[in-house]
Design a protein around this nucleic acid. Structure first.
Lengths: 110, 110
DNA sequence: GAGAATTATCGTAATATTGCGATTGAAATG
DNA sequence: CATTTCAATCGCAATATTACGATAATTCTC
């Protein structure tokens, strides 16, 4: 099964996994980097041009990033404008940072 | 295709995606949390007991974490001892932290 | 309103992931 | 050496993901 016994895990664990999954594809990492680089120059379908993927594929990746709360999309006329969600990105950074926090690294045995 | 045009993306992007993917499952998040909590008390098959998953499934998750470099395993006699890889965890924290860095959050448009 | 441009969605195919039981392999124990 | 124990691996089945082309849906321009 590709299923995931999500109900058995903590809400926090599920949320962390969702955030990580949103970044678990090179194309989505590339999109986040691109949006960060462009700042408020708010990219749109340019994303498609910069990626070696079909338009429909890029659209799907954007949808996933949006659903994870990392990216915000705003329709303005014919085209849609995407940019990073400050809130979402910050939450992700803090949450993942905590998961991988330094204090976690006690003496270490093996 | 479930394939991924990995060759078209930056090595950095692929690496980041791999790290994220390793954390993209609640069970694996749970394992990392558990190992962090236990410190150098280096857990073993106890992980299986704490998770609502079969032994073979847990073993696979551990393998993925190990392949991502987040976890180290050491066989000692009949049982295997797992703990967080200080190096791997630190690298992941820095890499993901950079991807989601604050400076990335310029004015923001939408 | 007709047509062009841009993006979202649908349908489909290929591949990956998740999960489990069963088996195997290795080491400790009798 | 037989047995037990622990963990890795194999072989499946179910589901998810990735990707694309084709098709909508929307808006702008003429």
């Amino acid at each position: 099964m590709g299923a995931t016994k999500a109900d058995v895990f903590t809400a926090e664990q599920v949320k962390l996994a969702q955030l990580a999954k949103a970044l678990a594809h090179p194309a989505r990492v590339a999109i986040v980097q691109m949006l960060a680089r462009r700042g408020n120059a708010c990219v749109c379908g340019d994303i498609v041009d910069e990626l070696p993927l079909a338009q429909s594929t890029v659209s799907q990746h954007l949808k996933e990033l949006k659903e994870a709360g990392l990216v915000a999309g705003e329709i303005s006329g014919v085209q849609t404008c995407y940019c990073l969600s400050a809130e979402g990105v910050r939450f992700a950074r803090l949450a993942l940072g905590e998961l991988l926090a330094e204090p976690a690294l006690k003496p270490a045995c093996c």
